[in-house]
Design a protein around this nucleic acid. Structure first.
Length: 457
RNA sequence: UCCGGUGUAGCUCAACCGGCAGAGCGGGUGGCUGUUAACCACUAGGUUGUAGGUUCGAGUCCUACCACCGGAGCCA
């Protein structure tokens, strides 16, 4: 696949420069660094940026990155002009380079393979680069997020983020789900529990969505099994390592589905996602120094406990906790520390949950809901449950929560025309990335984080 | 919003009881054919977050403000 891609690029550049067939034969092959080992002994071209450099006498060592990896290019002053060698020694970090040379195995090079440079074309000489290979503070790095993404650690996180999103989508697609996008502008509250971002919408107001769920319920009645994947906005002034004002959620919803089937789907998805990352992103997990032993244990079945059992754990740990409350971040850590795998907590008191949660017919003060708490203190990564499908009960709930009934007219229609038991959940992508990567803070899990104090870059 | 902490060179940080503003990295110049965050020598680089105050003297003490960090609440 990689070869196909690089030969495609080669074909394109040749095509664009109107080279003849003979010239093509003479030209060195353009390759990406992650496939360099396939071209040992061959003359190749690498397009990239200078990641780091050092020099010793007549040798210049250029660490070049191209987005797929990093390779050492060695320039010997005897092989190039004096002028070019001088330039190499003085090249600023992140200068853009096109390097041609022979790929050779060499134990002295990182990665065991290096490029012996024959010619080097300087595409752009960078200005003095602010991010050096030394340490920097988070605030400084976040101010330079657009450049920070080039560094190997951030690169690894984004590759794993990509893998997680791909795995989620593959999982649902493989089970016959249909992707149905939910709107970003909404006329009113979705859950009524959180603070929303308000925007001018011509002569009226609109709010940025805090969940696509209600729309997914409509879609599930049309397509059976659906999911949406999009950004979500919360205007809460949260200031913790687990919060962003803009984050991404993947939200499946299924018709003819109860709480236990919903939980089967959730644990199946997490198992698949974790195993996919372990299989395909070994190098990146190593870059992040993630303890993969803990991830390898993430296989079904996951523990399932009730809210009451979770409260019992808190009491045994002598945690300060009032029965009937929702769990705080510290409570979640105490509960999840009891288990090696993600734990699913069900049957919370109905009053701490959203209006659309179906209550347990056996215990009407409890909701048929589930929160999945990730191990190692990463907190809630999934929240979901069975939805209230009875029109009259739903109307009562809306009143109890002081929500505007007219705004929910369309939603109530779903309970008038073929209402069925249905359930779904929402997975917070960034918390999942933080957990799988083993990161201290959620802000590194998204390319350009938005927090209460950060809207730049 | 509340509680706690930090703010000194481009970056990361020192500066003891209030007494000459420092180092490493990065930048510049020079040296060396195997460096891995190289090394060696030399060199430039400062309104100590802002505004007041106390003092013979303030990076250091006091007041206010600003910015950021950590935590709480709220939540995925």
């Amino acid at each position: 696949m990689r070869r196909l891609f690089s030969s495609y690029l080669n074909y394109r550049s040749v095509f664009n420069s109107r080279k003849t067939r003979k010239d093509v034969k003479d030209m060195a092959k353009q390759v990406f660094i992650d496939s360099a080992a396939d071209y040992l002994g061959q003359e190749v071209v690498i397009n990239g940026w200078l990641y780091n450099k050092t020099h010793k006498g007549k040798l210049a060592f250029l660490m070049i990155r191209d987005g797929t990896g990093i390779i050492q290019a060695v320039v010997f002053s005897g092989n190039v002009s004096e002028e070019l060698f001088e330039q190499c020694i003085h090249l600023p970090q992140e200068s853009a380079l096109r390097v041609t040379g022979v790929l050779k195995e060499d134990k002295r090079a990182k990665g065991g393979c290096e490029l012996q440079v024959d010619t080097l074309e300087i595409i752009h000489i960078a200005e003095e680069y602010p991010i050096t290979p030394k340490e920097h503070g988070t605030d400084f790095l976040m101010d330079h997020r657009h450049l920070w993404l080039r560094s190997s650690r951030q690169h690894a996180i984004m590759k794993i983020r990509h893998q997680i999103i791909k795995a989620c989508r593959d999982y649902f697609d493989g089970l016959g789900f249909t992707l149905i996008d939910a709107p970003i502008f909404t006329p009113s509250v979705c859950e009524g529990t959180t603070t929303l971002f308000e925007t001018d919408y011509f002569e009226s107001k609109a709010y940025l969505t805090q969940s696509g769920q209600l729309y997914m319920e409509a879609a599930a009645m049309a397509f059976g099994k659906v999911y949406c994947f999009g950004p979500t906005f919360r205007a809460e002034k949260s200031k913790t390592r687990r919060h962003l004002t803009e984050f991404w959620m993947i939200e499946p919803e299924m018709a003819y589905c109860d709480l236990s089937q919903d939980m089967d789907l959730a644990e199946g998805m997490i198992e698949y996602v974790v195993q996919q990352v372990l299989e395909n992103r070994k190098d990146e997990l190593e870059t992040l120094e993630r303890d993969t032993g803990r991830l390898e244990k993430i296989v079904r079945p996951f523990p399932r406990i009730t809210y009451d059992e979770a409260v019992q754990i808190l009491h045994e740990a002598n945690a300060e906790f009032k029965d009937g409350d929702d769990f705080g971040g510290g409570d979640e850590t105490i509960i999840s520390d009891k288990f090696e795998k993600p734990v699913m907590v069900t049957h919370y008191p109905a009053q701490v949950k959203a209006f659309y949660m179906k209550t347990d017919p056996a215990k009407p003060d409890r909701a048929l809901c589930v929160d999945m708490l990730a191990p190692e203190g990463y907190g809630e990564i999934i929240g979901g449950g069975q939805r209230e499908d009875n029109l009259d009960i739903l109307l009562t709930r809306i009143k109890e929560h002081n929500l505007p009934a007219d705004a929910f007219k369309w939603y109530l229609d779903l309970r008038k025309y073929g209402s069925v038991p249905h359930a779904g959940f929402g997975l917070g992508i960034e918390r999942t990335v933080a957990y799988i990567c083993g990161l201290q803070h959620i802000r590194e899990t998204i390319p350009f984080p938005r927090t209460i104090y950060r809207l730049y870059p």
